[in-house]
Simulated assay, not measured.
Amino acid sequence: MLALEDITVVSLESGVSAPLCTRLLGDFGAEVIKVERPGVGDVNRHWDSVVHGDSSAHAWVDRNKSSIELDLKAEAGTEIFYELAAEADVVVQNYSPGVVERLDVGYDAISAINEDVIYLNISGYGRTGPYSDRKAYDLVMQGETGSILMNGSPDAPAKIPLSICDINAATYGTMATLLSLFHRERTGDGEAIDVTMFGGMVSWLGYFPHKYWHNDETPARVGMRHHLLTPYGPHETADDQYVNFAILSDAHWEALCTDVIDRPDLLEDDRFATNEQRVGHRETFEATMESIIAEESRDYWAQRLADAGIPWGDVNHLEDVLEHPQTDHLELIDELETEDGPVPYVRNPIDFDGLETTSEAMPDLGEHSEAILEALDYTDEEIESLREKGVI
Rank of each mutant, 00 (worst) to 15 (best):
residue 239 D to E: 12
residue 165 C to Y: 06
residue 210 H to Q: 12
residue 184 R to N: 02
residue 232 Y to C: 12
residue 195 V to A: 03
residue 166 D to P: 00
residue 234 P to E: 09
residue 224 M to R: 11
residue 184 R to E: 11
residue 209 P to D: 01
residue 235 H to T: 04
residue 182 F to N: 14
residue 172 Y to V: 00
residue 175 M to H: 14
residue 184 R to P: 03
residue 238 A to E: 09
residue 182 F to M: 15
residue 245 F to G: 13
residue 196 T to H: 06
residue 230 T to Y: 03
residue 193 I to P: 02
residue 226 H to W: 05
residue 242 Y to S: 08
residue 214 H to S: 10
residue 173 G to V: 00
residue 199 G to W: 06
residue 201 M to E: 11
residue 216 D to G: 11
residue 244 N to S: 13
residue 214 H to L: 15
residue 224 M to N: 09
residue 174 T to M: 07
residue 173 G to T: 01
residue 191 E to P: 05
residue 170 A to S: 12
residue 171 T to A: 13
residue 191 E to H: 04
residue 178 L to K: 06
residue 170 A to D: 01
residue 241 Q to R: 14
residue 194 D to K: 02
residue 224 M to F: 12
residue 231 P to G: 05
residue 166 D to C: 00
residue 179 L to A: 05
residue 167 I to F: 04
residue 244 N to E: 07
residue 221 R to W: 04
residue 179 L to W: 11
residue 182 F to H: 15
residue 226 H to C: 09
residue 238 A to G: 08
residue 190 G to C: 02
residue 237 T to C: 11
residue 208 F to K: 15
residue 169 A to W: 00
residue 169 A to P: 00
residue 165 C to H: 06
residue 172 Y to N: 08
residue 208 F to L: 12
residue 224 M to H: 12
residue 202 V to G: 11
residue 229 L to N: 13
residue 199 G to D: 15
residue 208 F to Q: 12
residue 220 A to Y: 08
residue 225 R to S: 11
residue 233 G to N: 07
residue 180 S to R: 04
residue 209 P to F: 01
residue 177 T to W: 13
residue 213 W to H: 15
residue 205 L to H: 02
residue 187 T to N: 12
residue 245 F to K: 03
residue 231 P to M: 10
residue 169 A to F: 00
residue 200 G to Q: 08
residue 217 E to V: 00
residue 172 Y to E: 04
residue 234 P to Q: 09
residue 226 H to M: 07
residue 241 Q to K: 14
residue 181 L to T: 08
residue 184 R to Y: 00
residue 230 T to W: 07
residue 200 G to W: 01
residue 233 G to E: 14
residue 234 P to I: 10
residue 181 L to F: 03
